[in-house]
Nucleic acid binder design. Structure first.
Lengths: 342, 342
DNA sequence: GCGCCATATGGTAGCGCTACCATGGCGGGG
DNA sequence: CCCCGCCATGGTAGCGCTACCATATGGCGC
């Protein structure tokens, strides 16, 4: 009765305590904290003193309830351990670390259904923005994104029809560029080796095929894929399969750098000369590509920058300044190295 | 006036709507959702029908405010891109994906101060549990953990004095085991190569040193470290430095597998025979170790399992069944491979 | 048959904050 | 000199949910 406060709350100071101490109304404290320019400098200072003395920290749950908006960025990626997405996520975190926003990370395991489920979990939280990997959402997921009532940024790809905003690059062009490079380097029986084969890998494969067909070199027996998750060890195995199917193979464009590294190791083990007998190109240009022996040609992509840019666009949209450019293509770069220097 | 509801809320159904439709009190709906066993089966069924028809989803923010407890696990790791922590995080996510709990992930960038800052951000959210990497928190951070008012699990190490619970393994023993293996294999001038040198790396170094001193082989010139973040490329460079300092080097225990891979590549490039001239041992046993040529001996650690176990312990504590074993040592295993098979 | 207790359900009163509207003071135009 | 409108500030009323306590019901012992 006497101290009804202590009944529930943890006894931490509330906005009312600060208001009392500063001799102002609670709403003014709230404003001073969120829109300082709307409060006179005098009061602002007084309030700051009271906040510091009490060690007041706003309760994010109460804030979210009252304003029907949580200071949370929902982020959905297909994998937490795939270095590529880890870099995107790192970019997102780094861009958000000095602001009021928290990150709610979801792992879709490359599953559209899981993505839907996670969007259904995120929705009731009323996030400030959503960042999702890819553009191949299920119809349900796409609808959820469209009706989320917050900025949405799709990342890692490019395309004509984003839900809202889009930052990434063309996997198809990347695959084509890698393959054309092998062709120009003089390779003819160029294989494609791919694991996981998510939509992005499919597009890289399409780019490979386009380049091979344009050069009159395409042969279905040169393509080796599996839905199994990618790994270095898998790269070795797939390369052995590829060689068995197409013994005259003289080059490979690998789905990603892990596979490429596996191919390189298998070449070492089988005493196949790289780049003389086999040329190798990877995708993403992880650090190890430059240090491998021989160093491995790869398509450099800007994952960290994609993460940063996606946050910048979302923040702009939250601030009401929706960027004029809804689709940003950050491109890629072919990094030529020893593995294709015939 | 007529529909005061539409004024603020997004118009989504609330618990009151469900209660009205089901002809029960709001509190009964709340109970049916959270503690079904406390509601008769009849009402439970009725309520379920109403929930389904309205598409009701509880508002997590309102729930958190009213109960002073959010269904959130706070997780603090030093890096998002380091595969080792990514695996731990994956284990955590996988263990939590089918329950009501969300994950709030924080990246400390290996900084104690950043860790403190993040704990201060997590605190007001009133998380259901906290999982933090390491046992070397600053005094302030440790106090924040102790007063968090929720289960706390420290992970990735072992030790006598956890804040609350602890799951991991001994990096010191791991370092010693790796080094003893090299000694047993006949190597004598065994170097330590380490990057980043966070507390865990320091302990591996201590294990290395203990083994070397026990064998009468320790020599400070054999130790090469840097605070720079680890990478394959850095491994190459550090190995060159190590060779320059100690030309008679005949083995290296590497801080981690990236460094070990860099050492291997540099050996290839410099035509140094592995394992004949130089023996190599890594740490963590990432997939690529088994596929490298030659394959690389490493200390296998159970990162994913650590993540899973940490969640299991936290959930048990939340349920009031605090595990009798507050410290769990998941150990490690030396995986012998070609790189040390002299 | 009566009261007691355990069980099932409901009412009330917040949790801590912000949206909305009201108020009072001030300066400028007519 | 008055009125209007703008600015800074405050009061009130929730946001949607759950803790706490009250109440009703029924079974049981004596």
């Amino acid at each position: 009765m006497i101290k009804p406060r202590s009944r529930r709350g943890g006894g931490r100071p509330t906005i009312a305590d600060v208001a009392r101490k500063a001799g102002v109304g609670a709403i003014t404290v709230s404003r001073a904290l969120r829109e300082p320019e709307r409060v006179s400098e005098d009061l602002r200072r007084q309030i700051q003193v009271a906040v510091d003395e009490l060690g007041y920290v706003p309760d994010p749950n109460a804030r979210a309830l009252a304003s029907a908006r949580a200071d949370v960025f929902g982020v959905l990626v297909p994998s937490l351990t795939n270095n590529v997405f880890a870099e995107v996520v790192r970019g997102i975190y780094d861009s958000l670390s000095d602001g009021p926003f928290r990150v709610q990370l979801g792992n879709t395991h490359y599953s559209g259904l899981e993505e839907e489920r996670l969007l259904q979990v995120f929705g009731p939280q009323r996030p400030a923005a959503l960042i999702v990997a890819g553009i191949n959402q299920t119809p349900t997921a796409r609808k959820l994104l469209e009706t989320a009532g917050c900025p949405v940024v799709q990342v890692m790809e490019t395309g004509p029809d984003p839900v809202d905003m889009l930052v990434g690059f063309s996997h198809l062009d990347g695959g084509r560029t890698a393959t054309e490079h092998l062709i120009e380097a003089g390779y003819r029986r160029i294989g494609f080796i791919g694991a996981r084969m998510d939509p992005r890998s499919q597009r890289r494969l399409a780019g490979y095929r386009a380049a091979m067909e344009a050069a009159g070199l395409f042969d279905a027996r040169l393509v080796t894929t599996t839905p199994v998750p990618s790994s270095v060890t898998l790269g070795r195995e797939l390369f052995r399969d590829a060689l068995a199917k197409a013994p005259t193979l003289d080059g490979v464009f690998c789905n990603n750098d892990d596979i490429a590294l596996g191919v390189l190791f298998e070449c070492h083990r089988a005493a196949i000369a790289v780049p003389r007998t086999i040329g190798i190109v990877g995708f993403n240009d992880l650090d190890m590509m430059q240090s491998a022996f021989p160093s491995i040609t790869s398509i450099r992509t800007y994952r960290y920058e994609i993460g940063r840019r996606s946050v910048a666009m979302a923040l702009a949209a939250i601030a009401g300044k929706r960027p004029e450019q809804r689709v940003v293509d950050l491109g890629f770069e072919l990094i030529r190295r020893e593995s294709t220097a015939r």
